[in-house]
């Protein structure tokens, strides 16, 4: 079943970076994720390219197929259309940016095939 949207995507939510710095969710930049992962002992940033976006099991859901990392592993996730992903160099993006903005006041771009999203993996897997 699709993953419900968690509260930290609400505009104004306070996010703690790995170095302890606090930022609002809407102010996060690509560098914040990269720098936080660099000082994390467990987590590593991967680049996950959107390969396909299909309808999900329910009207408000989509299945997004990602090509993950250097190995281009194919991973599908089912999420609500308003669920935001962080696109490298662009910021928050969702399949239905109007709905994301309406529900969470978080400005979003439209998530498209070919967009490269920030994702995480374990360092020990590499």
């Amino acid at each position: 079943s699709p993953v419900a949207l968690p509260p930290f995507f609400m505009r104004g939510s306070i996010i703690q970076l790995a170095d302890g710095e606090l930022k609002r969710v809407e102010d996060l930049k690509t560098e914040d994720f990269i720098q936080s992962a660099e000082i994390s002992s467990e987590l590593k940033i991967d680049s996950s390219t959107v390969e396909r976006i299909d309808s999900g099991q329910s009207p408000n859901a989509v299945v997004i197929q990602f090509s993950v990392g250097e190995l281009k592993a194919q991973v599908c996730v089912e999420v609500l259309v308003e669920y935001p992903f962080f696109v490298f160099g662009q910021g928050w993006s969702s399949c239905c940016p109007d709905r994301t903005t309406q529900l969470f006041e978080l400005s979003c771009a439209k998530l498209c095939v070919g967009d490269v999203c920030v994702s995480l993996t374990l360092r020990s897997l590499r």
């Binding site: 968690p6 599908c76 994702s119």
Partner: peptide, 19 residues
């Protein structure tokens, strides 16, 4: 005011989740 960790905001994707 709740404070959320940075790694909550981006998905954890690995091949084992596929299929």
């Amino acid at each position: 005011v709740p404070v959320f960790p940075w790694h909550s905001l981006v998905p954890f994707l690995e091949p084992s989740q596929s299929g």
